[in-house]
């Protein structure tokens, strides 16, 4: 069996607003659009994904928060409704998800071998988190590939952002080994915003774009610093400053997703493909991808 490989890594933020704005059949609320810069970037990345041969999407999500180890989805199908606990007015999504349990189990096993506390999630009533659903819907609205969801162990809460970085990097190495061993072609997804300070009020029409802007300039400057490093292919340096970025911008990188993905991909030294940046209810959101194949790698923006 040939070795498995990571064929693409995606930074895929999950504000439910982007699904709301797309008006898919699965989502109950209806919108007049909004957040086009982000959605059009997502749409273009989704088109690129259609041209890539892969077996599964593996997603690390901040909205399945676990404090006792890292958990993996461990049943082949989940079908239910996801209602966002924070924005229920815009996200009530009926989902039907297939899971690559074989890959999930190999990842759990490898993570455990690396000393990481792990658990398979095998409760059929479990509701898949809206981060997973939003990012996966935007990248693959046809839902024609199985996924693996990995929970985010909250090391940043219990210890520090530095410990989070170390543990997420170890999990990334373990997942890379698991993918190699599985013989599968896998797309990694790190599902989160960059800066993550929200406005605490909402306009009467959530998609009123005249009200949308970054929470403050400091958040924007930090976000752009990260984008610059991504363009320059300095992912090791980016991960090194991530604890400070996370603290300064209360960033969603605290969950460990970006560190996990970069570690699994060997800290790329090539430019990221930048698809779009936009604020959503004050938070900074970037759609980006890392393509290990130099032939298909693009300068998008």
């Amino acid at each position: 069996m040939p070795k498995g490989e990571i064929v693409l890594g995606c930074l895929a933020p999950h504000p439910p607003h982007v699904v709301y704005a797309e008006n898919p059949d699965q989502n109950e609320p209806v919108s007049e659009g909004g957040w086009e810069t982000l959605r059009w970037g997502y749409n273009r990345l989704a088109r690129k994904l259609k041209t890539i041969d892969y077996d599964a999407l593996v997603i690390f999500t901040p909205h399945w928060q676990t404090y006792i180890g890292t958990h993996f989805l461990g049943l082949p199908e989940f079908k239910s409704k996801s209602v966002d606990p924070v924005f229920p007015n815009i996200f009530r999504y009926n989902y039907d998800i297939k899971v690559d349990v074989e890959l999930s189990e190999i990842m759990r096993e490898k993570a455990s071998e690396h000393g990481i506390i792990t658990k398979m999630m095998r409760n059929q009533d479990f509701r898949v988190d809206y981060g997973t659903i939003t990012s996966c819907h935007m990248l693959n609205p046809d839902w024609d590939k199985p996924i693996v969801t990995i929970s985010s162990n909250r090391n940043a809460h219990y210890y520090s952002a530095e410990v989070m970085n170390e543990q997420a990097a170890a999990l990334g190495r373990a997942c890379a080994e698991a993918i190699e061993e599985s013989g599968k072609k896998v797309v990694l997804i790190s599902s989160h915003s960059l800066s993550h300070r929200h406005f605490v009020t909402e306009s009467p029409l959530p998609e009123d774009m005249s009200r949308e802007h970054i929470y403050n300039h400091s958040q924007y400057v930090w976000d752009m610093k990260l984008v610059d490093l991504m363009r320059e292919g300095k992912m090791r340096e980016l991960i090194d400053i991530l604890p400070e970025f996370t603290e300064q911008t209360i960033a969603e990188t605290e969950a460990g997703g970006l560190t996990w993905m970069m570690s699994a991909m060997g800290f790329p030294q090539y430019s990221a493909e930048i698809y779009g940046y936009q604020s959503v209810i004050g938070t900074g959101n970037l759609v980006a991808a890392w393509d290990p194949n130099a032939v298909t790698r693009e300068i998008v923006l």
Binding site: T66, Y67, H71, M121, N123, D125, F126, R127, S151
Partner: peptide
């Protein structure tokens, strides 16, 4: 179902 204690039941 609880995020951490899902194995205890629904």
């Amino acid at each position: 179902v609880d995020d951490d204690f899902h194995y205890l039941g629904s």
